[in-house]
Design a protein around this nucleic acid. Structure first.
Lengths: 197, 197
DNA sequence: TTGCCTAAGTTAGCGCTGCTAACATATGTA
DNA sequence: TACATATGTTAGCAGCGCTAACTTAGGCAA
């Protein structure tokens, strides 16, 4: 059963395990997966992961860190697609954030769902700060003030909260099934208009 | 070990199990608890819960539903504490929401952290609609329009998102440890000012 | 080339979990 | 008072995370 591969050594088990866990999280939900199942997907015994990771928590950590990276790249790409000052730029940034949440709802929930969990880990905290720095820069260039300005800080944070909150409610189906909202596009523009006059 | 109680029958096991699970979620986190541990807390065998609940999922469901109830009551109380039209009213509503998230971060994460999970359950969906109805009413009375007005709907949703998003970022420590934000009170007023001019 | 050191797999097994089946006891009602 | 039912028990199963001890393959020095 576990001998679908010809080599005794797997070769890229670490990366493949992270990917298997990511897939399982998306299909089974953030809690409905086991690393034993991921082992079966990767075609190794259930003891193999412990040559690469300390425990289950460390595997999850790797999954989350990789997801943070992808999300940050998507946000950066969205910001780069528009010139500084273009009002469409902040909307695109929000779309990228929401787009990631929709594309990978499982890991998104994992990234932000477990309260007080990231600040203890420096790598994750750094990744989070990097993402906020993107928002800060876009807002700063939009209203023509330095990123260190408290006003920029406050508005960038408000923007983040607005988009982040919408993601959770949207993923919960609260914005889809009930007719609470009109349209996501309209929402993003309302938010932009409200915080960046 | 399991004989700390004198009666063979426990009497109020169902309620006590829900409470035990709630406590464990708060102390161990949303994932770090087991129903076996809750049984030990309640002083019964690990098979006892299944006379009252179908499975673990149904226990969690009961915990979440009860939490939704408490949260709704807190929001209603906040809304009732100020007269219609008072600008302080919407700030108080936000404070109540955030207050619950801070008081019970574990169950709060559980309530909203697991994407696409509530809309399948009618009781939870109804509870969620009730909470949004409170926000709708407060916003409607604030800007002097009927609750059915799409404008009221859009602003109420935006308010919810802003507060909800802040809760998650605040619980993650992103708003506390880094100096991203100035103050929660200021944030609430900025949000109110932006959406309810 | 040979021979070892180490990285990266394996199997076996421990304790714990969620859950079920079968049995025991208390409670309410006829 | 008898008994049906609700609510507890113990025993036990399969699956999980994780460890220990063993095995295999690859890389490097002599």
């Amino acid at each position: 059963m576990t001998k679908n591969r010809k080599n005794y050594h797997h070769g890229a088990l670490k990366e493949q395990l992270v990917e298997a866990v990511r897939q399982l999280i998306e299909t089974q939900g953030p809690d409905g997966f086991t690393i034993a199942e991921a082992c079966r997907l990767a075609g190794v015994s259930t003891a193999a992961p412990y040559k690469h990771f300390r425990d289950r928590e460390e595997i999850l950590h790797a999954v989350i860190l990789a997801a943070m990276h992808r999300m940050g790249a998507a946000m950066q790409a969205a910001a780069d697609a528009y010139p500084a000052g273009d009002p469409e730029r902040v909307v695109a940034l929000g779309r990228a954030y929401i787009g990631f949440a929709r594309a990978e709802p499982g890991v998104f929930a994992l990234m932000f769902g477990h309260a007080g969990h990231h600040d203890e880990d420096e790598a994750l905290a750094e990744e989070g700060r990097g993402k906020f720095a993107i928002v800060l820069r876009v807002v700063a260039e939009h209203i023509g003030r330095p990123p260190e300005d408290p006003e920029v800080n406050a508005r960038a944070y408000a923007l983040w909260c607005a988009v982040h909150g919408h993601c959770f409610l949207a993923l919960d189906g609260k914005a889809d099934k009930t007719e609470i909202m009109v349209s996501e596009e309209e929402y993003l523009r309302l938010v932009g208009r409200s915080y960046l006059p």
